[in-house]
Nucleic acid binder design. Structure first.
Lengths: 158, 158
DNA sequence: ACTAATTCCGACTAAATAGGTCAAGTATTA
DNA sequence: TAATACTTGACCTATTTAGTCGGAATTAGT
């Protein structure tokens, strides 16, 4: 899961469809291109992947375009981002062992990166297109539990 | 806050100091270089920034090296990563307005990226070097609150 | 049938970034 | 005084990013 501009454009574009579609009709990429200021050629590249991932359906020909494959509340940001970025998990410490495996043992920070990735992924998978439209996002969890103390308690203990 | 290999190396190296230091003595970069399989030249680059950020103290001369500026429990991963990556927040949607501001209004996904960044930053700031050594990481918060429903409740409601 | 609008597909590319290296020092101490 | 260690900044290079380009296939309206 990469957090790049490409992934952001994909979310913007697919959100645009949810907002702009009339009666569930198809929305053309040229319309999205104008509204979101993203080049048509780049949108074509993105929507090829979104279609293959089953997130949108296409209608070819004149008056064609794309429509969401499901309800906005059922399409999650994480899925959109994974669709347009080929590598699900990139360059994770330990894939090669270089700089991670020391005499056969996992490095201390290996699990840290895994926990971080899980956290980011969990966050993005918890948000649907509908949530974005409604501007409804998860707040930071106030009780990040580490060894029985909350983050706030740990800060106070310092 | 960028999540690159450079930032990971910095965390690995600073964790190495916490683990390898004898009686709080300085640890040389050449030792870290060997143990963590990171080039000495690259470590020098990283520790220059860590020192300026006040996360480590240096001792020059023979038998010199670096030591942590504070207790491992007081140095947090987020601070380490911010120290080695110059831009705190990069490429955020809306900095230029291109592809974000449409007729003067913020794009729908603008706040999404902000919420995501806050979430990642909160996660990393909650973890100290000591936590990494003890392999103690925050679990995914089971109650991601969005509009009063937890993530689980929302999934069930779909 | 013809035309215009649109998706589909793969190759290509310019610019930026990541991830380093190298050279030439300066400071400290065994 | 030699060895070790830190300091600084310029430089380098492969990869990734963020696209473009050209053309083919498909469909709706005239």
């Amino acid at each position: 899961m990469k957090l790049t501009a490409k992934a952001r454009y994909a979310v913007m574009a697919i959100t645009d469809i949810a907002v702009s579609s009339k009666n569930g009709g198809a929305v053309s990429l040229s319309d999205i291109s104008v509204r979101q200021a993203i080049s048509l050629a780049f949108l074509e590249q993105l929507f090829g992947k979104l279609r293959k991932a089953g997130l949108v359906d296409s209608e070819r020909g004149a008056l064609g375009g794309y429509k969401l494959a499901g309800a906005p509340a059922k399409i999650h940001i994480g899925a959109v981002m994974r669709a347009v970025e080929e590598e699900i998990q990139t360059k994770r410490c330990g894939d090669t062992g270089i700089g991670c495996t020391i005499k056969g043992a996992k490095c201390l920070s290996h699990d840290l990166w895994q926990a971080m990735e899980d956290h980011i992924e969990g966050f993005l998978d918890a948000i649907s297109i509908q949530d974005v439209i409604d501007q409804r996002f998860p707040q930071i969890c106030p009780e990040l539990v580490t060894n029985g103390l909350t983050a706030n308690e740990m800060a106070a203990a310092e």
